[in-house]
Design a protein around this nucleic acid. Sequence first.
DNA 1: AGGTCGACCTGGCAGC
DNA 2: TGCTGCCAGGTCGACC
Length: 272
Amino acid sequence: MPELPEVETIARDLKAKITGFKIEEVQVLDPRVIRHVRPDDFVRRLKGRVIASVSRRGKAIIIRFFDSADQWIVQLGMTGQMIVSGDPAPSRGTKVTLRLSNNSALHYNDYRMFGRLQIVGDLKEISYFKKIGPEPLEKKFSVSWLSGALKKHNSPIKPLLLNQNFVAGIGNIYASEILFESGIHPSRKASDLKDKEIALLHAATRKILKMAVRLRGSSVNTYRDANGQKGKFVNRIRVYGRENESCLICGTALVREMQGGRSTFYCGKCQK
DNA sequence: AGGTCGACCTGGCAGC
DNA sequence: TGCTGCCAGGTCGACC
């Protein structure tokens, strides 16, 4: 599910809802979602901690504490959800439940279990953070940086956008949407893009991601924010999941193609 | 080292 | 109704 805009939405909501509260109880219903530390360590290192901050890096949520150097890393994978609720009872997909000092519950739901919950003293303990690329909405992601970085890669542009070591936070929905907005064909070789196209790609990346953050993400399927609500960017999606439907610009039937084992959607006429 | 592919999981849905 | 096959928003490790 969740790409940068969805994870950003969840992190902001969590920040408002759980900061300052103490973790009174940790219940692990399925230990398979706990990685990097043993499940009993996971419980021991969270229990009694007071939440100081919630932030995001790439598609990971980072939760810090006032009274410990430990950081709780939540990666939602395809179907992970972090739901704050007044109801302490776990639902069908709940894998971990926390009880907070205001008596609310924080449920980690994840039916497919591609997500992972980890505790680290230093982010670099986890391979995900060792080589992660720049944040596309921050300064380092400039046209000149992008231009230099693209020239180092021979792969098609679409799978490169999915590579978290290239740029952080873009996933399969937004990669397709960004390329449509840019007018760039997903099979174009990254190193072959012209200066004008690179500028378009840069602008489209920021425009699409910013709009999606503003609209609290997309809900194609199981994505929910920390309130359990769906995102509104789903109404702005122009190519993802629209195989054989008309291009909203030229009317041509949109194409779905497998690229690197993942579906890519595009307009063969608008994207060159 | 960069690029590519399969594995990891469960569930929903289309088609028969 | 019930079965089968396909598909799903991510990441990692093994391979060339």
